[in-house]
């Protein structure tokens, strides 16, 4: 597949920050108590990730290698602060729901990780796409976790009460780890099964000339 599709696929699935790379777990575990919070956090990280990747990619030739980490951190911190101020002014509910985890995005490993691994070495558009894809992968993971935890732990979905019955365990920290672990297992199983199928198909295709179908 072409370069851009590969980048997108990597960000969403192959290098999914939550289920594969297991980065940014702190925010994941704390903010998936409700699906809305999960989506909110994911989108915020996506925006910051895309912007930071773009800026860092723009500056990649300018920033010397020895000070790249402090430079990245300053840029990311600035972006996070701006986003904080915007949220505080215009979406105070989300701002309060995220609480202390909004400033913690600065040290979210995903952002620094992608900046270091990709944005500092690749052209602008690729980096932006990578940031977007990774962020969306993160959002997807958080949404799934949020839906499961909110449905089982509170009986509601995106704030709308669906079931009167709920098991408080899933809203707690213990439940967070538990659901997270189960989701990683399921995700890995699915990805492995799919890639196994693909490998088999490739192997069959390769061997086809030697084993003509009758």
């Amino acid at each position: 597949m072409n370069k851009y599709a590969k980048i997108t696929f990597n960000g969403l699935i192959q290098n999914n920050p939550t289920f594969k790379l297991m980065l940014g777990m702190c925010a994941t575990l704390a903010l998936t108590t409700s699906a809305m919070n999960g989506v909110g956090m994911g989108l915020t990280v996506t925006i910051i990730l895309t912007l930071s990747n773009t800026i860092i990619s723009l500056l990649r030739k300018v920033i010397p290698g020895s000070v790249r980490i402090p430079a990245f951190v300053v840029i990311i911190a600035t972006l996070v602060t701006i986003v904080r101020m915007v949220l505080d002014k215009f979406i105070p509910d989300l701002y309060e729901a995220m609480g202390v985890f909004l400033p913690l995005i600065v040290v979210n490993c995903i952002i620094l990780g992608r900046a270091e691994a990709f944005a500092s070495k690749n052209p602008v558009f690729d980096s932006a796409l990578d940031g977007l894809a990774t962020g969306l992968g993160f959002t997807l993971a958080l949404t799934i976790l949020g839906i499961i935890r909110e449905f089982l732990g509170k009986g509601s979905l995106f704030g709308i009460q669906i079931m009167p019955f709920s098991i408080g365990f899933f809203s707690s920290a213990a439940g967070a780890f538990f659901v997270y672990g189960i989701c990683i297992a399921i995700f890995t199983a699915i990805v492995n099964a799919v890639s196994l199928k693909q490998k088999r198909r490739k192997a069959l295709n390769f061997a086809a000339p030697f084993f003509p179908r009758r």
């Binding site: 920033i63 430079a71 840029i75």
Partner: peptide
């Protein structure tokens, strides 16, 4: 150079 760049960014 590093100092200057960092300072400018900040």
């Amino acid at each position: 150079k590093s100092l200057v760049v960092l300072l400018i960014i900040v």
